[in-house]
Write a protein that binds this DNA or RNA. Structure first.
Length: 768
DNA sequence: TTGCCACAAATTTTT
DNA sequence: TTTGTGGCAA
């Protein structure tokens, strides 16, 4: 069996391709491409650019191509370099929205109201700023958690609204507004921007005809191309429109079925907006999938078919059916991990490279068990994303030092390192410094000298502050001229950070030293890269670069099995894919509160994305019982599994599951005493869950609801819920049933210890 | 001021 | 399960 997974080899410049592809490559004027999964869209964009360069002689620096990740940008560069040669790719503007905006802001920083060495605050930094704001405004952190306030503000900024556009609707909105204003003020004072600002600041310049940079921004690019257009938000879309300027050489490529970032502000309506803004836009559909086997494509279609409100299109493939999609029933998450790892091992033993396989999960929390088993079985793997390297405390410490040196106004960074390593500057001193800075409306670092001129702190504190200040001043002078690596090394030495770690002499401290070494390595790498590009490596460029690396960017091209969340898998493809945890409540993921319908839709698209990553083989696992976040859950198989068309998949189960004791056990939670060992007990519990027929779990009786069928089928006895029965809820624990409301989705009133009686859907309850 | 301990809270996906 | 916070003693 051979599968043709590649688009026609001659794709590109000579007119021998399917007409749709030719259209994308050669079309003039605005163009919108609906590109189904695996239709080779990135490749098509690449060839369109190549065509612009080669046939139309467009200078490379006049072309802007926006990708979703830095990795995708790099790949596009590499491909173009392979096709064109001559180092032409170097002058192209290829990158993410964020990296492109950093570049533009470096040019126009003054007009944007920023110092040249502005720094980028990540979510942790934002939180630190917000905490300070709340403290300053004397707002209770409990009632207004920093995260929540930031989320609200973030939503506003995502829609290009500042404090002046803020509408006060709810009773707590005026607090939010006050925080919003103070937050913006603090960022400004710190010469810092958050992720949204990066885009927003450029947008403000590019949309303001009065702005001196207006013309430069709008005429800089003659051709603009955007990949993954379905995940573009309001601000990004307006940015694209502005940068395309008066011309209409704009090409956007996307797939509404793969929109998985609505929670981050992605707006499918932009697709409609595009056809409205560019009424003469040509529309091309790429519907042939070159990537996946027939069975995988059918499975994907089965899931996405149920999606509401999608653009009409038909994905199809010429590829042979391949092997059926394996739906693997496992007993618990350890069993699941063991099965997956065993399969990986077999394939690797058969000569498949680990890098051609991949394991996906819905949330990072699932990775730990998989990692344990991988390590135990000596299967080489890499976690893509997750606890990020740059989030480790020692790494953040060093970076904070560097950021303070580059930008002394960055208070968040100063406070992070002010007493690391310990230099006898404690809470009281810090509070005094904070108060001073707020009074004088200046940065904390500037306030050091001022504070030392008062008697608000003791002499010991003054001495500590002074010596820190002197140290920072010296290093700052150095940072102006010395290469980044030298500065970083000096910081570690002169601040005593290295000595401090070494003195600890614990395994943990050693690991930290290693991490710092790795960070120095990354600086070296950056320096070399810049040298190759003929540019001078500056600290602030380095800092900006690492603020913007995404999860997938950290994926190395090494012989290890990549493991990642489904989100991170977007845009990637593998010969063999294992999707784990396909269970209700996990995938689709359901949080605490009412599961919104459109959230389910996004989960569905996410499942579609996951499935379509596979080229030849796809396995989807689900368990009866899963320990996650320290709690055991008994989950049904995902509804998405039920939507797979017949004949495309094959049900399998792990050995542990097939060795279960007799399935006649009752449907309620089995009693421990009926089983000899805990293993059997678990297995029986698992078995019960698996036996519940989908969609008919609850049979209506008068005032009673059961966890099982009671209509005389042969599935075992029914456990009946009636007032007085004891039930268990994953969050509230064990409670007593007060009342039962029947219906399609029975609602039970339950009294839990310590809570007022709650009305809860039966599906959330299990037997106690 | 520092470091330790106990307790509480949260727990999606990310540029 | 992990992470953060707050209080307390040295």
């Amino acid at each position: 069996m051979t599968l043709s997974h590649e688009p026609p080899a001659d794709l590109g410049l000579d007119g021998l391709n399917p007409p749709q592809i030719e259209a994308v490559v050669h079309a003039h004027g605005p163009l919108i491409v609906f590109a189904g999964a695996g239709s080779g869209k990135t490749r098509v964009i690449t060839y369109r650019i190549a065509n612009l360069l080669a046939t139309h002689r467009v200078p490379p620096y006049r072309i802007l191509a926006v990708t979703f990740t830095n990795k995708a940008a790099q790949e596009m560069r590499d491909r173009l370099e392979t096709i064109m040669g001559g180092g032409i790719a170097r002058d192209l503007w290829v990158g993410t929205f964020h990296s492109m905006c950093v570049r533009l802001l470096r040019v126009h920083h003054e007009l944007a109201g920023l110092g040249r060495n502005f720094v980028i605050y990540d979510t942790a930094d934002q939180k630190a700023v917000m905490k300070r704001v709340l403290k300053e405004l004397r707002i209770d952190e409990k009632r207004y958690p920093p995260q929540k306030v930031l989320a609200r503000i973030g939503k506003e900024k995502q829609e290009a609204r500042g404090p002046e556009d803020f509408e006060v609707n709810h009773y707590f909105d005026d607090v939010i507004l006050r925080c919003f204003k103070a937050y913006e003020r603090h960022l400004q004072a710190a010469n810092a921007v958050d992720f949204s600002d990066l885009l927003l600041r450029v947008l403000r310049l590019a949309e303001d005809p009065e702005c001196p940079a207006y013309d430069d921004l709008r005429s800089r690019f003659s051709h603009v191309l955007v990949d993954e257009f379905q995940d573009v938000n309001q601000v990004q879309y307006r940015l694209v429109r502005a940068l395309a300027g008066e011309g209409d050489n704009i090409c956007v490529v996307g797939d509404d079925d793969q929109c998985i970032y609505q929670w981050r502000g992605a707006d499918i309506r932009n697709i409609r907006g595009f056809t409205r803004d560019f009424p003469n836009a040509k529309l091309v559909k790429l519907e042939q999938n070159y990537r996946s086997s027939g069975n995988i494509v059918s499975a994907a279609l089965g899931v996405i078919r149920h999606s509401a409100d999608r653009q009409p299109k038909e994905l199809w493939t010429d590829n042979s059916d391949g092997s059926p999609v394996g739906i693997v029933h496992c007993s618990n998450e350890r069993d699941e991990a063991a099965w997956v790892v065993d399969q990986l091992k077999r394939r690797i033993a058969n000569g498949i490279s680990p890098r051609d396989l991949a394991v996906f999960y819905r949330v990072h929390a699932q990775s730990r068990v998989l990692e344990d088993v991988m390590r135990h079985e000596n299967v080489p793997y890499q976690i893509v994303g997750g606890q990020k390297f740059f989030d480790r405390s020692e790494v953040k410490d060093l970076l904070s030092y560097l950021r303070v040196l580059v930008n002394p106004q960055s208070d968040v960074d100063l406070f992070r390192i002010i007493n690391v390593p310990a230099r006898k500057i404690g809470k009281k001193t810090i509070d005094a410094l904070l108060a001073m800075a707020n009074e004088n409306r200046c940065s904390a670092q500037e306030s050091i000298v001022a504070l030392c001129g008062t008697d608000r702190v003791g002499t010991a504190a003054k001495r500590a502050l002074r010596s820190l200040d002197e140290l920072l001043q010296e290093l700052m002078v150095m940072a102006e001229t010395a290469p980044p690596l030298e500065v970083a090394e000096a910081v570690l030495e002169r601040t005593g950070y290295s000595a401090w770690l070494e003195k600890q002499d614990t395994a943990e401290a050693d690991a930290r030293v290693d991490n710092l070494r790795e960070l120095l390595g990354s600086i070296t790498e950056f320096e070399e890269e810049q040298a190759d590009a003929g540019e001078i490596a500056t600290l602030s460029d380095y800092l900006a670069r690492i603020s913007l690396i995404s999860d997938v960017d950290t994926m190395q091209d090494v012989a290890r099995v990549p493991m990642m969340t489904v989100h991170a898998a977007k845009g990637l493809e593998f010969d063999g894919v294992f999707i784990t945890g396909m269970e209700e409540r996990l995938f689709p993921l359901r949080g605490g509160d009412p599961g919104e319908e459109d959230q389910l839709e996004e989960e569905r698209r996410l499942a579609y994305v996951a499935i379509t990553r596979g080229r030849k083989e796809l396995f989807i696992t689900h368990t009866n019982m899963r320990m996650i976040y320290g709690q055991t859950r008994y989950n049904q198989p995902s509804r998405f599994l039920l939507e797979l068309p017949h004949g495309t998949h094959q049900a399998m189960q792990t050995e542990a599951l097939s060795q279960l004791p007799t399935p006649r056990a009752a449907w309620g939670k089995p009693r421990m005493d009926r089983f000899q060992t805990h293993g059997e007990f678990e297995a029986a519990a698992a078995r019960q869950a698996s036996l519940r027929p989908q969609g008919e779990r609850y049979i209506e009786t008068e005032g009673e609801a059961g966890f099982g069928g009671d209509d005389g089928d042969d599935m075992g006895e029914t456990v009946v819920i009636r007032p007085g029965a004891r039930v268990r809820h994953p969050k509230f624990g064990v409670g007593v049933v007060r009342a039962v409301n029947m219906g399609q989705d029975p609602v039970i009133t339950v009294k839990f210890a310590g809570w007022a009686p709650k009305r809860i859907k039966l599906s959330f309850l299990s037997m106690a």
